[in-house]
Write a protein that binds this DNA or RNA. Structure first.
Length: 571
DNA sequence: GCCGTTTTCGGCCCGACTGTTTTCAGTCG
């Protein structure tokens, strides 16, 4: 994707400038611009082609706007080329080693001629680093540790895995007498797709006792730091957990500070400064007097803002919206009335329609769509027309015996490479709910892929586009298509976009939810359940929807049973 | 390099911990 390439160029420039010791504010500008570009849902190339003003984008002025155009034309920019002549290409990689920043990288390169991660490892193992100025044996050990974790790819973990770690950790913390209260902040609280570490805020009656008890937690493999304010550990598997001890009067301010995001915090602190206040993790201060800090609400209020839900705190316009009283009233888990994507033993699911329906009722749902695969998905035992016809018949029969509950006879039909659907439209037209998805030919060129999806959206028999980008987080890249054209077509045809709640997918991603909402497209949050337990994954889809600014009215499966029936079968 | 209800110039968020020092720089979040 072009935007990603532009963002990458800006990040590379920032990395090199940092090692060269250039103006930190100039470096920040490049990083801010990279973030702006990375968050965009439409191609910058289109904006340029349409002659739109790039300087209207946050953090992009005349200079960087020109560089965007330059990168679009040539794939790179003169600034980066010049910088690369001043530093070997792999030196910036060293910044990814935990504990190494620009200053140390510079010393390592200039004094020892270290040009790559390989060089770094060799030098550390040979004991050459401990003699450098400002470094010692400890630094050398930490570099080797940092290299090991980098090799183990102990990077970010998925939100689902993180939630499991939090539950286990929570059981330990609950048993510690000296811990009065604990809360997880950070990107976990913002419900990002992936989490780099866990930030746990602890209010303790006795910090020393609490710290000692915390450190008995079995999965702790390494103690990274231990001070009066903070204890950092690495768990088996590589997840880092930072425990921060917080006083009750500052708990709200600390929650804000450590929940972030960093960019959101910076905007809030600027706002505080304008009011001659100072905001930090201990509170909001006027001079030395604490004006607020006990709760988040109190701090926001003192800044003349309503409380902002953590999922929105990404500096994507939430503070301006809050200021104008235009924050969305975010959809909640309890608004969800049913699940519209589930598989059964008829294809690759583990449970029967009846079992799933009973489980869905137990969750308080009023409806469930059975959407098994179509024949193109051979590995899943996809159904042909005849088999689907019989399957749908059985589902309807079952539905007739379920009072106050609607079991929709549906399908997840494949969108073939040429845009045709994998089953006859006459058959599909008779079903209650048709999800159309792509499970093959993921790497078509953008124009071809766009036509493929538009054909499905325009078929007249599709209700919903399943996992629209087809990505698997960390394993498969999203497919390429013209987002605005497809979303526009969905709005015109009344086709919903799915937010697939499966933790590996979370597809639509948050920024596209926001875009779709702005364009007036309705979304559906579905679990794509392949077994009963999967129905509980709904919360992860709701989190994505909330990060995408969605309200209850933007989500189809918040409709009551009667409203859903009416919507699907207009009289 | 960006940005403006303090400003078109002069600012640009803030504090803790580590490891190396002997008063602090570098890194992190």
């Amino acid at each position: 994707m072009e935007n990603a390439r532009i963002a990458a160029v800006f990040e590379q420039v920032a990395d090199i400038l940092e090692i060269l010791g250039e103006n930190p504010f100039r470096i920040r500008s490049y990083r801010n611009a990279a973030r702006t570009v990375g968050d965009m849902t439409g191609p910058l190339a289109d904006m340029v082609a349409e002659g739109k003003d790039l300087t209207a984008l946050p953090g992009i002025g005349e200079g960087l706007g020109g560089k965007v155009r330059e990168i679009l034309q040539s794939g790179t920019c003169e600034t980066l080329q010049d910088l690369r002549r001043r530093l070997p290409p792999q030196v910036p990689d060293l910044l990814h080693v935990k504990g190494l920043g620009p200053k140390k990288v510079k010393v390592l390169y200039e004094q020892l001629g270290i040009k790559s991660l390989g060089d770094l490892k060799t030098a550390a193992e040979a004991g050459k680093i401990r003699d450098l100025e400002g470094m010692g044996a400890k630094t050398e050990q930490n570099i080797l540790k940092g290299l090991a974790t980098l090799e183990a790819e102990a990077g970010r973990i998925g939100i689902y895995e993180a939630a499991r770690a939090v539950r286990a950790l929570g059981r330990h913390l609950e048993d510690i007498g000296a811990v009065r209260r604990w809360q997880v902040a950070g990107s976990f609280r913002r419900r990002r797709e992936t989490v780099g570490d866990l930030d746990v805020l602890v209010e303790a009656s006795d910090r020393a006792k609490a710290a000692e008890a915390i450190l008995t937690y079995q999965p702790i493999e390494d103690v990274i730091a231990r001070g009066r304010q903070k204890v950092s550990v690495a768990l088996a598997g590589g997840l880092q957990v930072d425990f921060r001890f917080i006083e009750a009067e500052a708990f709200g301010a600390a929650m804000m500070y450590f929940t972030g995001s960093k960019a959101h915090n910076i905007v809030l602190r600027k706002r505080a400064r304008k009011r001659r206040l100072k905001l930090n993790e201990y509170g909001l201060f006027r001079g030395k007097r604490r004006a607020a800090g006990k709760t988040e609400e109190e701090v926001f209020k003192a800044l003349d803002l309503p409380w902002i839900p953590p999922e929105l705190r990404e500096d994507r316009g939430e503070i301006a919206a809050a200021d104008e009283g235009k924050l969305p009233k975010l959809v909640q888990r309890k608004d969800i009335r049913g699940d519209l994507h589930a598989h059964t033993t008829a294809t690759d699911g583990a449970n029967t329609p009846r079992q799933l329906a009973e489980a869905a009722r137990k969750l308080g749902y009023k409806y469930l769509a059975i959407t098994d695969h179509s024949k193109a998905v051979r590995v899943a035992g996809g159904l042909n027309a005849a088999a689907l016809g019989r399957h749908a018949g059985r589902i309807r029969e079952l539905d007739a015996h379920l009072d106050g509950f609607y079991l929709l006879a549906g399908v997840e039909v494949d969108i073939l490479k040429d845009g045709r659907l994998d089953l006859p439209e006459t058959l599909l037209g008779g079903l209650d709910w048709v999800v159309a998805s792509i499970h093959s030919a993921f790497s078509l060129a953008q124009a071809e892929m766009t036509d493929r999806i538009l054909a499905a959206v325009g078929s007249g028999v599709v209700h919903c586009l399943g996992h629209p980008f087809g990505r698997i987080i960390g394993r498969r890249d999203p497919i390429q298509f013209d987002v605005d054209r497809v979303f526009e077509a969905c709005r015109e045809a009344g086709v919903c976009l799915e937010i697939n709640a499966y933790p590996d997918r979370l597809d639509l991603p948050d920024v596209y939810c926001k875009r779709a909402r702005e364009m007036g497209v309705t979304m559906v949050i579905s679990t794509d359940a392949h077994k009963i337990a999967d129905l509980d994954l709904m919360q992860y889809g709701v989190s994505v929807a909330r990060r995408g600014w969605l309200e209850k009215g933007d989500v189809l499966n918040t409709l009551s049973l009667s409203a859903l029936r009416k919507r699907l079968k207009p009289s």
